[in-house]
Amino acid sequence: MSSEETRGRLTTRTIAMPADTNPSGDIFGGWVLSQMDMAAGICAGQRAQSRVVTVALDSMSFIRPVKVGDILGVYTDITSVGRTSMNVHVEAWARRGRIGTREKVTEATFKFVAIDDNGNPIAVPDKEDLPAYALEGYSI
């Protein structure tokens, strides 16, 4: 186990499969990014209690590779909430060989905007107006 601690709560977990590799056998960075975007979208959607769309992410560097058979755990933490938007810090961790050591592979901050059914921005509800599950594990 890595001595570094995760930030946020575990939002998704999946196994890196051979279909997720490039011709050299390495897991595509885009596959990891899509897993992070899905987890961040789950987190943001629960907080917004509505549809959300990704509008930006800060820079992202890969610290370690993800390999076939690794379990990718994605952790999310809401860092700020504005009127219609929120920032979600996301970390991706790989557990080697399903039961082996765990290493952080990358992290980034994703920005989401809450939208209505027509795609127009809407206000993110105040904390006190949310069900308990929407805030579970988050300080913001």
Rank of each mutant, 00 (worst) to 15 (best):
E4H: 08
E5G: 06
E5F: 00
R7Q: 11
R7H: 14
T12M: 03
T12K: 10
R13S: 14
S24I: 14
S24G: 07
S24D: 13
G25W: 11
D26R: 08
I27L: 01
G29E: 08
G30E: 10
W31G: 09
L33H: 08
L33T: 07
S34M: 11
Q35L: 00
M38W: 06
G41W: 01
G45V: 10
Q46C: 06
R47L: 03
A48E: 02
A48K: 01
S50D: 10
S50C: 11
R51I: 07
V52R: 04
V53K: 14
T54Q: 03
A56D: 15
L57V: 07
S59V: 09
S59G: 15
S59F: 08
S59D: 14
M60L: 15
R64I: 00
V66P: 02
V66K: 00
K67Y: 06
K67A: 12
L72V: 15
V74M: 07
V74F: 06
Y75N: 00
D77G: 00
D77N: 15
I78M: 04
T79M: 13
V81H: 00
G82D: 11
G82F: 04
G82H: 05
T84F: 11
S85Y: 09
M86Q: 08
M86R: 09
N87P: 00
H89P: 03
H89I: 03
A92L: 05
A94D: 01
R95S: 07
G97H: 08
I99G: 02
I99N: 06
G100W: 03
G100N: 10
G100D: 05
T101H: 10
E103A: 12
K104H: 05
V105L: 00
E107G: 05
E107Y: 02
K111C: 12
F112P: 01
V113W: 01
D116G: 08
N118T: 13
G119Q: 12
G119S: 09
V124Q: 04
P125A: 07
D126V: 11
E128I: 15
L130S: 11
A132H: 13
A132M: 08
A134F: 02
L135C: 07
Y138W: 15
S139K: 11
S139Q: 14
